[in-house]
Amino acid sequence: MFLFLSWCAGGLLVALIILAAATVAVPEILNPGHLLSVAQEAGVIDSIVVTFAAGFVAVLILLLFGTPLAYLLARGRSRWNGLVESVIDLPLALPHTVAGLMIYLLFMIRGPVGMPLSEIGIIFEEAFAGIVVAMVFVSTPYYVNAVREGITQVPERLEYVARTLGASRFRAVQTITLPLSMRSILSGAFLAWGRAIGEFAAVVMIAYFPMVVSTLIYHRFTTGGLAESRSIAFIMLVACLLVFLCFRLVSHGWGKRHDRT
């Protein structure tokens, strides 16, 4: 009985997602000519490329900067850990327009970070870099929290033993902790990527152009109507589905190899 009720409850959620996807997908499948013409538009292709590329760069930045932070939070015994974790979680609770405003004020050409960087040629307003910064901001908690949880699962004693066997702290983390946290790192990276490419409000406030897909859908919705925006939404839906299916396959293989704790 419990299993039956669980299936019913869970099934409702899955049905909601499928139903929402179907309202976008069915009209597009029934009108392939229109879908094809929209898919071939340079603006749409550019937008998808910009979105995926910015999401990819954001994840790279998170891998480089977020992984050490997650390690420190997982292993650290500092009394400041709680405060740092709360700061990291802030983007989860903020309305995305507030996040966008914060990013804009910080990185605009006259902003405290934007101004000095603009002097060396790095511009964020209406630029690819602005999209990346907004994506990093909103996806940081997804990545850091997932990786921190993964590292916490790896016994610290394995690092101790590695060190007594001759590994430096860095080598111990590199050869023991990170491989054993690989499933969490991958999972965090894809969660962060998914969150990043779906961001609209934070991105649009600092960089309406170049258009990411969410901006383009909003733009077409307000200028071209429902049919135009729905076609782009459907293309994005398929692209995301393919990417996440690939991720499942990759993480399953890596997880098997590394997740032996």
């Binding site: 016994p155 033993v161 023991i176 491989p179 590394h258 704790t261």
Partner: peptide, 14 residues
Amino acid sequence: GVALVYQDYSLFPH
């Protein structure tokens, strides 16, 4: 030059 073996042996599982 000191080696340590824990009670659970802490072998690297991967």
